[in-house]
Design a protein around this nucleic acid. Sequence first.
DNA 1: ATACTTATATATACAATGTATACTAACCAC
DNA 2: GTGGTTAGTATACATTGTATATATAAGTAT
Lengths: 260, 260
Amino acid sequence: MWFNCQDQQGGIIATMTSNDSQQPTGLVWERLQQQSAGGRLALSRDQIIRAAIAVADAEGAQSMTMRRIATELGSTAMALYRHVFSKDDLLDLMLDAVFGEIALPQQPSGDWRADLRTFAYESRAVLKRHAWVMPLLISRPTLGPNYLRWFEFALASVARHGLDTTTMAQIVGVVSGYVSATVSYEVAEEEHTRRIGLSEADKRALAAPYIQRVIASGHYPTFARFFTEEVSLDPEQSFAFGIECVLDGIEVQLSKRSAT
Amino acid sequence: MWFNCQDQQGGIIATMTSNDSQQPTGLVWERLQQQSAGGRLALSRDQIIRAAIAVADAEGAQSMTMRRIATELGSTAMALYRHVFSKDDLLDLMLDAVFGEIALPQQPSGDWRADLRTFAYESRAVLKRHAWVMPLLISRPTLGPNYLRWFEFALASVARHGLDTTTMAQIVGVVSGYVSATVSYEVAEEEHTRRIGLSEADKRALAAPYIQRVIASGHYPTFARFFTEEVSLDPEQSFAFGIECVLDGIEVQLSKRSAT
DNA sequence: ATACTTATATATACAATGTATACTAACCAC
DNA sequence: GTGGTTAGTATACATTGTATATATAAGTAT
């Protein structure tokens, strides 16, 4: 153990002493929660993850600071580092915790279309509950246990009658892609409104003169129809359309494949 | 003009003097580039946007700092604020500049399937060139002129034979959703690799023991097939599959609609 | 040319953030 | 008790966006 060297030479090795009780490299999922043999016990990793999610849900992504999370727990920022290696690690853990909330049957039913539909709706519901998730998910490849379970369900839903692995993955990619993109856009609106601190109505009012000029320019006639026809898209209906559309596409591809 | 009051009372009004030469509220697209009548001329807004994009392309999203962009131009961070109201504004402008790179015909050809396919491939190509774009796009609703042109093209591609505005938007949503999700995931891998500063091979090697344990657990049999069968997905092929799948789905929906 | 106006760039400063380092205190085994 | 181990605290620092104040240069009016 390199703890011994600590006091003698504060130089190079100093980076790995004291707080760095965990390896600096490797995946989060391999950094197990080592259990107390001494020390006062107050915090736990799960507690921290829960608190972080609560803060992010309530106050948005920009409030997910180590200090804010710590005060939520009546503790200090540095105390958290006893339980998570870095903020990045914490984000990975939060992400996986959210995937854990997605309620899916243990096994697919066998009706791939119904299974993927369930997968899509359940995923959307949970991801919308946590508006901070999508930007995170999109910028970090994740392999946590809950994410894997989620992914496995989707794969297993289409893994039948000798479909090759590649095609399976591609099909799941289309469904999960549509879901994540849709949720991203839905949620971005809300988060943006929160960030600039205006009501939805105020925001619209603010944009109105610009929109008017855009329409008046005549360069965007099809886009303009949304405003002249006063169309407002219902997210639920749009999502339903999109999912059935994607499932229809998959069905076409599947029938092409079984035809040959 | 409130400039007159400047020296007398440094209090409340001081917030709007000096550097705040632009309105603090409203859309970026309404903050026009006011042109020089005095002052030394060196920077321009376009120059800043280009420099910012260059830095982000070359060094990743976390290098997009005001100081870094300024040094790229041989200037200082605060000088940039003469030309952009805030970093947020700059990000919006960068985003729109990238959409300007997406080469699309002036008008759709009339073959909606070919048009949407072009739309998808062109978009993907450009968005992949700028790895920092997707997380940004996904977390901020944008309405810049180039974005609108891009969106208009897609809408116009399907705006025919009395299709209602809502359905048009939903169709475009499915296509653009698939594209953005796919690009996001493709790009996230690269960016993540860059962030942690390892080669692709090193990263894989690092994850290997974890993956092995995941497979050995037996909980993810379908997922495990990717490794036991040594499948590696070709992004080009997957994208082609996904797009055709989505287009097939749209075709089904369209034929349902014209049938009724 | 000279003075005035206004746009532009710089210098400095500050609050917020992630986290390194060093210290203190609680619990366990003996 | 004593020693060791670990959890939590205090402090400090580099980096960020950006407010404020000042200096400078390009036009314009005289």
